[in-house]
Nucleic acid binder design. Structure first.
Lengths: 146, 146
DNA sequence: TTTCGTGCAAACCATTTGCAGCAGC
DNA sequence: GCTGCTGCAAATGGTTTGCACGAAA
């Protein structure tokens, strides 16, 4: 595991959190996924089981929350019934256009957004930014035709 | 009702949608709310009942979807268990900082975002932008202390 | 008259929670 | 050993859906 990751874990350990195999292996999985792939809790669970890693859905949800709160991953919501999760890579966040009707999502990156997010967060008292998300909603070409 | 609103309704009517009292009165309610107030479906339902407007929760959810898809309102998600809704005023969308831990939300406006959103949406084939949302997640000052 | 929309109640389903046992540290 | 974490199973709760009736156009 790269140093930056262990460093973060050590910091969490000092704060009283425990680094369990489940938490570690879940994060490991996120690093193995292709960039831009965002999976649901259910999908992540299946992936882990197929890697012979035992983890209950309950723990998975608790771990996802843990990793999100600590900035390791991002929680994405596209207005569907469930959430999606992906690795949080600072300065490399990508963003989404979402069709209000069919749910189609298109990704995009924008260099300017980081600066803007950083500036806005900095204007607040002690707000420690972990993630920022830009979403554009509308009607995609196909749905407009119908 | 201002002309712009009736115009939109007429357009919808032409497209085969029906303008029912429930849809009309729900939208009316959004116009009456203070700017920046975003309520949950449950809260909206209570408000309507207290105004003696009969509407079932099921219809409310269907109407919220209808109004969202057609760009009248915005559906907001702060990572909580339920969604929030507010009027969608083009060029005047506001955005949010959200604490990952306590759920505190702070609003902000940013003039530059509209241009950026418009540009990005324009680069896609026939994507008709209805709304854009910028969210910044992190840890607020109070939660960091704990 | 023809659809489309509504209300009701039941179903859904992702997520959360209580509790007892287990395991980091 | 202390305390936080996990697994299990049950509960939760916002949201969706089937169906029969009512109403917009």
């Amino acid at each position: 595991m790269p140093e930056s990751r262990s460093e973060k874990f050590n910091k969490l350990r000092e704060e009283g959190y425990r680094i369990t195999p489940q938490r570690k292996q879940l994060l490991e999985l996120f690093y193995e996924l292709p960039e831009g792939e965002h999976l649901s809790a259910e999908e992540l669970h299946k992936k882990l089981l197929s890697k012979k890693i035992q983890i209950s859905l309950a723990t998975l949800y608790r771990s996802l929350k843990f990793l999100t709160e600590n900035g390791f991953i991002r929680e994405l919501d596209f207005g569907e019934y469930h959430k999606h999760y992906e690795l949080n890579i600072p300065h490399k966040q990508h963003h989404h256009l979402v069709c209000n009707i069919c749910g189609l999502t298109i990704e995009f990156e924008d260099e300017n957004l980081y600066e803007q997010a950083f500036k806005i967060a900095g204007e607040q008292d002690n707000f420690e930014m972990k993630d920022y998300q830009f979403k554009i909603f509308g009607i995609c070409g196909k749905c407009a035709e119908r």
